[in-house]
């Protein structure tokens, strides 16, 4: 046993071998930040959100805003990924979409934007249309008659 350890230690003494060993150790984890992996994630669901925390408990105000906007439109069934749990994914998603911040929202595999953009799309009505394009009927469309009735 100790002989194995000694041999390994000797092997790792050279700088090149050491970094190769470390690379081998981390290669599995690094995969979650790769283009191929993220490409698969964003195309897996009609709505995909990369955020801090989870929809039930967002860990940042911007991520929370995105969750609340989607909820208003009745979008509850979406895939979300917590970047706080995966540093590779956190950096990988920024590289993937060339977007420097979290949260990030994808519709049918296409990058839509972060919190600011989703909020403005919500305010100007574009979000209802964009959801429609991917086959999701916004719950706000069904609520419209009610608010009209309230006004009368």
């Amino acid at each position: 046993m100790s002989r194995v350890f000694l041999t390994t230690a000797r092997f790792l003494r050279t700088q090149g071998a050491r970094s190769a060993f470390l690379r081998a150790l981390s290669s599995e984890a690094a995969d979650t930040g790769s283009r191929e992996h993220i490409d698969g994630l964003v195309k897996k669901d009609k709505v995909v959100v990369f955020m801090k925390g989870v929809p039930q408990q967002p860990m940042c105000g911007f991520s929370n805003a995105v969750v609340q906007i989607l909820r208003m439109h009745g979008v509850d069934n979406y895939s979300s990924y917590n970047v706080l749990e995966d540093e590779n994914l956190r950096q990988g998603i920024k590289d993937y979409s060339s977007w420097p911040t979290i949260p990030q929202v994808f519709l049918s595999g296409e990058f839509v934007g972060g919190c600011d953009i989703l909020l403005q799309m919500h305010q100007n009505g574009d979000l209802v249309e964009e959801l429609q394009k991917v086959g999701i009927r916004s719950a706000l469309l069904d609520k419209q008659p009610d608010t009209d009735k309230d006004k009368q």
Binding site: S98, W99, P100, V112, G113
Partner: peptide, 18 residues
């Protein structure tokens, strides 16, 4: 479109946004 406008701003402040 909005996304491109925001990208312009992000690109301008690329270093600062870090």
């Amino acid at each position: 479109p909005l996304l491109q406008r925001h990208r312009l701003v992000n690109a301008c402040l690329e270093e600062e946004l870090k």
